[in-house]
């Protein structure tokens, strides 16, 4: 197991370098970073050249990348053009997004799995059909529609929630945004659990569990659920990375000052340092989440052993 983890960590290095290099290149292609500094006017060539030298932008791209990564590993993500260190932006944005992700994942786990088990055990019955149609609707409607609709109804029309989340972004305020963020994944978790449960319900070991005289709830929780949740856990694990970085739409709708919001601002203002810095951290989050899922897989299924 230890050797496996080391190998996986080593494999992360090229993935990490590749991903960050791509982002670095893309952001550089986006436009001249100095152009944005002089406001509406065009910079005079002398100032531009001086700024370029100051930021090291006159050097070859690979050198810029090496310098940047060197700084990143020293904990320096550079400064945004408004003079605020990027790390400071991260310190304010990540806790908010993590809270939002936690809310979203809880929704996925609780609602998704409960609905999945209910429908999986009652396949073909009215409950199953209606939940199935509902998930189909949720999957096909884009997040910005669900988000805006809920904001309009719950926030503006009925006044149950505040339409916009305060900068503090406490858990209570994040319930509806979390539900919106989770909605599509939640529908997938429901369907995945349903299929898995329905398939395992007919398996021989469930029949054995019934033949042992176990009460129904024990058959379901100990024998059926334990096996059926393996693919679901994998899905939710990988989804954590996606939720952290993919909250741009939701965070925009509810005005949440998290990672998605900062990324959006960064792209809008051609704020290279912010975009590259945030995405670099997200790449790391994604890689670590994937590794944890693979390790969890071995814990859940003893037939999988890593050497």
């Amino acid at each position: 197991m230890g050797r496996y983890v080391v190998r996986r960590l080593l494999q992360m290095v090229p993935v990490f370098i590749g991903a960050t290099l791509l982002i670095f290149l893309m952001v550089n292609v986006m436009g001249d970073p100095v152009a944005g500094l002089c406001g509406e006017r065009q910079c005079d060539p002398a100032t531009a050249a001086q700024l370029k030298r100051e930021f090291g932008l006159d050097r070859p791209l690979w050198q810029q990348y090496a310098t940047y990564m060197g700084n990143v590993f020293a904990g320096n993500f550079g400064t945004a053009f408004n003079g605020q260190p990027v790390t400071e932006l991260m310190a304010s944005a990540f806790p908010v997004t993590i809270r939002l992700t936690v809310v979203a994942v809880l929704f996925e786990i609780v609602i998704g799995i409960v609905l999945g088990v209910m429908t999986g055990l009652r396949r073909g019955r009215p409950v199953d059909t209606s939940v199935l149609v509902l998930t189909l609707v949720v999957i096909s409607v884009p997040t910005f529609v669900t988000g805006l609709l809920l904001q309009l109804l719950l926030g503006v029309k009925w006044g149950w929630i505040k339409p916009s989340v305060s900068p503090a972004a406490a858990f209570g305020e994040l319930i509806v945004p979390g539900l919106v963020l989770a909605s599509v994944s939640l529908a997938y978790v429901t369907r995945l659990t349903r299929t898995s449960i329905a398939e395992n319900r007919r398996s021989d070991y469930v029949r054995t569990a019934v033949a042992k005289g176990l009460p129904r709830h024990r058959v379901v929780t100990r024998h059926l659920l334990r096996n059926s949740l393996i693919p679901v856990v994998t899905f939710i694990g990988t989804d954590i990375g996606a939720l952290m970085g993919g909250a741009i739409v939701t965070e925009r709708i509810f005005n949440i000052h998290g990672v998605g919001y900062q990324l959006y601002q960064g792209i809008l203002r051609q704020n290279t340092q912010t975009v590259v810095g945030f995405v670099t951290v997200l790449v790391l989050v994604f890689l670590v989440a994937n590794l944890l899922v693979d390790l969890l897989y071995a814990v859940l299924d003893p037939r999988i052993r890593y050497a």
């Binding site: 021989d204 070991y205 054995t208 569990a209 033949a211 096996n227 393996i230 003893p302 037939r303």
Partner: peptide, 15 residues
């Protein structure tokens, strides 16, 4: 009590 045919599939693989 009952003994089933294929013990590999009749025993729960993760317990």
């Amino acid at each position: 009590a009952m003994i089933f045919q294929d013990a590999l599939s009749s025993l729960n693989p993760v317990l």
